[in-house]
Amino acid sequence: MKTLSILLISLSSFWNVTNDPYRKAMGEAIQEAYQVHDITSCQLVLNKLERIANANSAKWEPGYYLAYSNIMMGAFQIENAKKDTYFDLSITQADKLLASNLTPDVRSEVLAVKGFALMLKLNVDAASRGSVMSEEIFQTYQTALHFNDKNPRAMYLLASMQYGMAQFMGTPTEQACLLNQKAQQYFDAELADSSLYPKWGKEHSMAMLESCK
């Protein structure tokens, strides 16, 4: 009987790790979130994430990927007003998470995704929003790095802002490129495991490496 109990407990733990409905659903949703290619596919992912978030209000991952996917949805839109709608949804989602208790690493990721949404919102009307919003974006990335100075996404995004500013000012882009190179090292160190932790951004960072050459 004792053997049977041990066996049952062991099997039950194995079941939880490999077949936990939350991890399974989130894992699928994240893979889909990274592969969206148009408004329709993005909407399907957003809906799936919303359902998971609704059933798991204590988890941070659904809210985080909702913020991320709303950015993608905004990027696919053509009309500026609709872009703003989705970027604002992303910022609201991030702010909601930031108001909750998060580990420093997770807070760093949420700040990075918020900065990303702010950056794309600035681009909707760069002429009038540039001078007003850029300070907040820099600050958001810097705070993200304050909570985790090895966050490759925050690092790359900050580098891209610095790169754009340097180009605008006509000053050397060297510092921005060095920061992006550093971000690459941390991207490379990220494990290709099945965890729900964010893993996006490496391709964009690599594209920036090309621009820096």
Binding site: E50, R51, N54
Partner: peptide
Amino acid sequence: NIYIEGTY
């Protein structure tokens, strides 16, 4: 998006 609250 149509779903049953509290479920996937």
